[in-house]
């Protein structure tokens, strides 16, 4: 019974966790992503479509500086495809032998090109607002994936009486509801290579899947390893407990 009591203690410590994440923002609806849950994985098609949305829409303002083009090999694109994608972007290299910085097409080892050289430039181009880096955005928001999917489709008319400030937009899911980012996803705003109809919901789901992968590229490997470790521990636990019973069999305690 004392074991149970100690487990209960540990469990209640764990239960203290969600309280930390609670904020004033409304709770986004569960978007039922395939990668949610304990054993979920990323849909490769959604990842590739999501990257397309990022590249064609989000990347105009949002950097993803933790990612390199080579990382795209992990979402199911071939090396030739990734080389071609990288070569579409000019990155700064140098200095060359004359001491000058120069532009060249990006290679696999280059980081994603940033839309602005620094935060000040980003603010200057965006009415004073800073479009955050999206590399780990899904880990950096409470209930990140559901929140971002809801946010991207959450542009609605403000309720009567709510004054939306100059240069701001009303969003049902943004904390405080006034967001500098405009509603940028349009129906058929991108043309998917695999023929998936590019509704706003579809684009939001796809790009959220891509961002979730970008934030936790280790997720699939981690869960696979976790299952193996827990199976191993279950067997080891059985063996250790049996050994313990044997060792203590001749002792009254």
């Amino acid at each position: 019974m004392r074991v149970i009591r100690s487990l209960a203690l540990a469990a209640s410590l764990l239960a203290a966790g969600p309280a930390l994440a609670a904020g004033s923002a409304p709770t986004p609806p569960d978007a039922r992503f395939g990668f949610a849950g304990l054993f979920g994985t990323f849909d490769r098609g959604a990842l590739q479509r999501g990257f397309q949305v990022y590249k064609e829409v989000c990347a105009a303002c949002h950097a993803m500086r933790q990612l390199s083009y080579r990382n795209l090999l992990e979402i199911g694109l071939s090396e030739a495809q990734v080389r071609e994608i990288a070569a579409q972007f000019q990155v700064t290299d140098g200095p060359n032998d004359e001491g000058q910085m120069f532009e060249r097409p990006a290679r696999l080892s280059d980081r994603f090109r940033r839309p602005f050289p620094n935060e000040q430039a980003a603010r200057a181009a965006n009415n004073g607002a800073y479009p955050p880096d999206l590399s780990v955005i899904v880990k950096a928001r409470p209930d990140g994936a559901n929140y971002i999917a809801a946010l991207l489709t959450g542009y609605v008319d403000p309720p009567p009486g709510v004054e939306v400030m100059e240069g701001m937009h009303y969003n049902a899911w943004f904390p405080g509801h006034q967001i500098a980012m405009p509603n940028i996803l349009n129906p058929d705003g991108v043309e998917y290579a695999d023929g998936t109809p590019a509704t706003v919901e579809q684009q939001a789901r796809d790009v959220t899947t891509f961002l979730a992968w970008a934030a936790e590229p280790e997720l699939e490997q981690r869960r696979r390893m976790g299952v193996q470790v827990l199976i191993f521990l279950a067997i080891l636990g059985g063996l250790v407990y049996a050994t313990k019973r044997k060792v203590w069999a001749d002792v009254k305690h």
Partner: peptide
């Protein structure tokens, strides 16, 4: 014998775990 076998298996298993 039974206990020794059990101990041996357990120890071997634990050793594999440590290696991993």
């Amino acid at each position: 014998t039974k206990r020794d076998f059990l101990k041996l298996t357990t120890t071997a298993f634990a050793a594999v775990g440590v290696g991993a």
